[in-house]
Simulated scan of single mutants.
Amino acid sequence: MMDELVPRLAVLRALAADEHVTHAAESVGVPQPTVSRWLAALGTSLGAPVVVRSGRRVRLTRAGRLLCEAADRALATLEAGHRAAAEEVSPERGQVALGFLHLLGRSVVPALVSGFRESHPSVRFRLVQNSRQDILNHLVNGVVDLALVSPPPTDATFAHAVLREEELILVVPPGHRLAGRPSVRVAELAGEDFVGLEPGYGLRQITDDLCAEAGFTPTLAFEGQETETVRGLVAAGLGVALLPHADSPSGLPEIPLNPRAAREIALVWVADIPLPPAVRAFRDHALGV
């Protein structure tokens, strides 16, 4: 049964991404007529079609999409198991798929990867940058093995360990009324326009939470996907921002928050899925740095 089912589920995954039967057939390495027969057989076994025609393409029905979602989870587990078995024989030739926030690609990720490669030179890395929520979704779906995010997730699906903490400060345009202050309370920012990251980014969540604790909802004049873009918008006088300290002098006034605020950067993995040897070795290295 599994010999028949697995390649058919792989076809469903390909169709969900591309909605093209020929491309799905090429991706699994079987003739197009075979794919058509498999789809018909799946529909017969379910008692409902899994795809419907939409012009020259096909799209998954609700039944097909439900089956595809289950296939994603099942095949991710199978793929992880296959990797683990292969790497058990030769762990030094494994691969680590690491997801992380854009900001962490400047210093945190290069330092961790280069340090690990000194003792594991043959392990390969696949690096994926995105927003916090997208990275956590990738982790659940098996796209990445480990994730570096902030703040750490509270969902029981995940296990995590905090690697470091970064202070958050207020960044304002030159000449701003608060520039030169020794510290500032978040509540004093209630009437300010903010510049920040888009929803789904960890720093945006932290900003929203700090403002909520201070009793107001921040007014976001501009939203971006990179902290350097946010700094540039602040420099142009378009708003204020809550950010980590700049890696290099930016020319913008930076004011500590009172009370102090910080963000935790955590390494995260799925709690109930065993990690392949190479991934486990990298996790242990990161936790020991």
Score class of each variant (00 low, 15 high):
G224R: 12
V109H: 01
G202N: 02
M2L: 15
G142N: 07
L197T: 03
R62Y: 06
T229E: 12
P7Y: 09
V171I: 15
L12I: 05
Q95G: 04
M1R: 14
E264D: 08
G200M: 09
R124P: 00
P256R: 13
S150M: 10
S36Y: 08
G47P: 06
A86F: 00
R13C: 06
P249T: 09
R177C: 11
D134H: 10
V140E: 07
E88W: 09
V162Y: 08
G94F: 00
G105V: 06
R231N: 05
M1H: 15
L127H: 00
A71G: 00
R124K: 02
R106A: 10
A48S: 13
V113S: 05
P152L: 06
V186L: 03
V268A: 04
A235I: 07
S122A: 10
W38T: 01
V123R: 01
H20P: 00
G81D: 06
P31H: 01
L78K: 00
A14V: 12
S183Y: 02
A10S: 10
D134Y: 04
T229H: 12
E223F: 05
G191L: 13
G288C: 09
A235T: 05
L148V: 04
L275E: 04
R93C: 00
A63W: 03
I169Y: 11
T22F: 09
G191T: 14
D284A: 15
E254G: 14
P277V: 05
E4P: 04
L170N: 10
S122I: 01
P277Q: 02
G47S: 06
Y201N: 11
L287Y: 05
T227C: 12
A261Y: 10
E226K: 11
P173M: 13
H102T: 03
V11T: 08
T22D: 07
L210C: 11
L238P: 03
V11P: 04
L66K: 11
R53P: 03
A236K: 15
